[in-house]
Design a protein around this nucleic acid. Structure first.
Lengths: 210, 210
DNA sequence: TCCGTCATCCCCCAAAAGTGCTATTGATAG
DNA sequence: CTATCAATAGCACTTTTGGGGGATGACGGA
């Protein structure tokens, strides 16, 4: 039996949802509220297993809501439920640990499905949401921004990042320290930096290495 | 009409898939191969709209495959298709721009669904996969794991990462170079590193700074 | 063939960094 | 009231680094 708590400021919609869920044999709506101001208290008292959470609400919205809930009750499943679909909010919810993300145009049947799904450890999202999540993965991916470093220079830089001294690098490649020095000079010039620390930071931030 | 290309090294499975898809009125299987060695050429010639891609294949596997395809033909949809696997590979595929991720235990009906879905811009994944994707979002936001650095040490480290010399750091904080030196000594010890480069790398990798 | 790039090596030299100690002060926790 | 800790500072000493030169052979494209 799923114990469901609903946060949704549109009263009519909230009531429809309650009716819908109460019609299911294995679902019990333990409460419904129009904002998240007292979410901690409410969750503590009503002990839901699944929360349906609207994002846009007066007072404390769903993003703060999911954060609070997940911080205090990480075992409670939170399903975001919204018309809004800008990437910012989506990401904020996901980072806060929301377990799923539904759009309001989702059909009642799918909502039921999603609740079952999330309660059994899944992470329901509409294909649209899923697509955007994947999208952000690609964006976060490095663009091989070309600094014009030669293969050797890359190898040297890699060891520098590992904290090797010039001497150690020279030894690793069986070349002279002077050569390492030359490579580093060229690297610094190409990267427009003045010392190793800066080069290391820049290289990592550009994701030249992981 | 979807033009489908299949990469799957298990011949029996590949044939089953072909049969399944050919049975659909709006799907056409344009080819099937056991590895990705010539994937660019094949995609160019066969012009699929959707590719079903196994991950584990002899020769070039599906991860290299999806990378190649997405680099040369970003408009072609790629559906990864695999037995359950480690997070590493999953993430690698997603970063490479895979459009969806199916488990081999997925039912034929769902496979059909997924193809329709991906072709219309969605991103089908099983709830299981979705859960793991969300999981990584939470993990990626891990809190600055505590090295026990004091506030001052953090400030000093931050400037070090910017490439400032001891002298510059000292000047910035109106303290003596010897003090900066002391802080750095403590920082290196706490971080278990031996020099600035290593400290910078470690700090950035731990996301102590961005 | 000539020119450019890469990788290699060398010199000099000053500045910077790192190591190992010690030590004072002020705040804070027990 | 002490013990700890953060922040400060100093000194001696060695090693490493960065910036300025210059040089050579190999390789490849114009």
């Amino acid at each position: 039996m799923h114990q469901i708590l609903i946060y949704e400021d549109n009263e009519r919609l909230r009531n429809s949802l309650e009716l819908l869920l109460k019609g299911m044999p294995n679902m019990n709506v333990v409460g419904g509220f129009g904002n998240c101001d007292k979410v901690i208290e409410q969750v503590k008292n009503l002990m839901p297993t699944v929360i349906l959470m609207d994002i846009d609400m007066p007072g404390e919205g769903g993003i703060i809501g999911v954060e609070k809930v997940k911080r205090h009750f990480p075992e409670v499943f939170v399903l975001m439920f919204t018309v809004f679909d800008d990437d910012e909010r989506l990401m904020a919810c996901l980072r806060s640990g929301a377990n799923g993300y539904l759009l309001k145009k989702t059909s009642p049947l799918q909502i039921i499905d999603a609740i079952e799904n999330v309660a059994s450890g899944g992470a329901p999202m509409t294909p649209e949401i899923a697509r955007r999540v994947l999208e952000t993965f690609k964006v976060e991916r490095k663009i091989p921004s070309d600094l014009g470093l030669t293969p050797r220079e890359m190898q040297v830089l890699e060891l520098l990042i590992k904290g090797h001294t010039y001497k150690m690098i020279a030894h690793d490649f069986s070349i002279s320290v002077e050569t390492v020095r030359s490579h580093l000079k060229n690297i610094y010039e190409k990267m427009h930096v003045n010392n190793g620390n800066e080069a290391v930071a820049k290289a990592l931030r550009m994701r030249l290495f992981e």
